[in-house]
Computed example of a mutant assay.
Amino acid sequence: MPYFWVVGTDTDVGKTMVTTLLMRNLQKQGLRVMPYKPVQTGEVFNGEQSFYYDTAMYEKYSLQSLDLKNLNGYSFKEAASPHFAAQLEGQQIDTQRLLSQMQQLQSTYDVVICEGAGGLFVPLDTYGKTTLLDVIVQSKLPVVVVTRTALGTINHTLLTLEALNKRNIDVLGIVFNGHTESEMEQDNIQMILQHHPLPFATIPKLEDPSQIAEYALRDTSLFERLLKHETIIN
């Protein structure tokens, strides 16, 4: 467990929020935790200041001082697929550089959480030959899958889990994000867990990011699984 990915079934499913929640909750266990975003896109402007949402969230809500220069590998201004955003800036994403950064962090911190970009098959190169999934396979790290609870999540989640299982990637659990407790959403969750009875956490729809500071995951089967793996390995 000390090193794992947070991946999504799609873009905007809440990977950054979940990564930040996991970071905070694991930090509360006395562990030195480092979040890492290999590739982030979409520069955000606030007046004369600019920032990137993902790494800004890590920095804002971390309970520990973070090594800011090692929070991510590449940052591109355009809010687009990594390969296209990189192309617009005349750059290419070096996946070996990303893997080396991950290995370096793993030698320094108790826990490293690598947050993916978009879904598993997001291309990282211009020709579409290398995807995020390829980097996950090469990293040999397990994953936590983040998915929605709304209509369409059954198909997206099962396809994501099938792709991971086909490549023998260990899935530590699922986070169902944005739950409003409707009957349909409850059934969606139950249906997914019938196919894949994994540890899980269900997170309600948070109206404001600041609610992250008060939200606890410690009583979920997913968090118990993470702590169990950390104890075994250490």
Rank of each mutant, 00 (worst) to 15 (best):
T149D: 02
R167Y: 00
H195A: 15
L172M: 15
D125F: 06
P142S: 07
Q87N: 10
T202G: 02
F84I: 15
F200M: 08
V135W: 01
A213P: 01
Y127Q: 14
R24G: 10
Q27E: 15
T9Q: 07
V33Q: 02
D94H: 03
L159C: 05
G30I: 07
R148L: 11
Y74D: 04
T153G: 09
V44I: 14
L21H: 01
I189C: 10
V144T: 03
A163C: 04
T157K: 06
M102A: 09
D10C: 10
Q96N: 09
F51D: 01
E48A: 13
E185M: 13
G178E: 04
E230K: 15
D12C: 14
E214Q: 15
K60N: 02
L105R: 05
G173C: 12
H156W: 08
L159M: 10
D94A: 09
A80F: 08
T19L: 11
K77E: 05
Q101A: 12
Q138D: 13
P2G: 07
Q96E: 15
R32M: 07
E207Y: 10
L193G: 06
T157L: 05
G118W: 05
L66V: 06
Y109D: 00
T231D: 06
T11A: 10
M102H: 00
L193S: 07
P2D: 12
K166P: 00
R167L: 09
Q40W: 02
Q64L: 08
V145D: 10
C114T: 13
F45L: 13
V171T: 15
N168V: 00
Y53F: 14
L26D: 11
S210E: 15
M191A: 11
K77A: 13
K77W: 05
N177P: 08
G116R: 02
I203F: 04
T19W: 12
L71H: 01
Q64P: 03
A213Y: 04
Y74V: 14
N25M: 11
R97H: 11
